[in-house]
Amino acid sequence: MLTVEDLDVWFGHAPERVDAVKSASFAVRQGESFGLVGESGSGKSTILRAVAGLVDTWSGRIKVGGETVAGRHRSRGFHKTVQMVFQDPYASLHPRHSVDRVLSETLHLQGMVGIDARITRLLDQVGLGRGFRFRYPHQLSGGQRQRVAIARALAAEPKLLLLDEPTSALDVSVQAEILNLLCDIRAERGLTYVMVSHDLAVVAHMCDRLAVMRQGRIVEDMDAAGLRAGRAQGDYARKLIAASTRYVREA
């Protein structure tokens, strides 16, 4: 479904050039859920942005469903295949567009017909219901906003969903609701997920396999069971798991 080979991403020009991602390679199979974990600045979100076509300074090879993409340009077919949910639901919805406007514009752009019925169905699917259709973002809570963002991503009926820390801005009880929703949707539609998170427990819950990133490089590949059991090959991943599990008070 998604193959990334030897991906380099950088920002800025030579003396101040920052290499955000350094020769990263991984592959995600159809129907799989893949996690990218790491601390801030490790380049995990940047990989998603490069795949989505939101960054143009990259080299290497990105293949989505057999189609090789280049630079920042993406075909119409790509937008129907790949969609993204962003980290901050407060920044990912246009402050002056109502839910109705967001979804109808999206459906229109994706060339869908029967827009009215589809909006109702999408809202039901993400657990909001039609009562939310004409609300503006400021009339929604963080969790509700993220549901709208998920509905927007689902509007195109994509095959691959890129999830950039979809719950890190939310309270834990709301996080549970959103994670359950994402699980349900995946089971229902047979979607492929690539999920970025700094929270190992969330990734273990959501993903089958994951890659640990550090300073732009993928330093470890493991599966969820290995993560839960703390079976890491490298030092860094082991330390990261230990630090996430508990804070040890000094004697």
Binding site: Q175, A176, N180, A201, V202, A224, L227, S244, T245
Partner: peptide, 12 residues
């Protein structure tokens, strides 16, 4: 409602 590393669950 917290997912936990040491206790896998089907649904939160």
């Amino acid at each position: 409602s917290l997912p936990r590393l040491d206790r896998p669950v089907e649904r939160l």
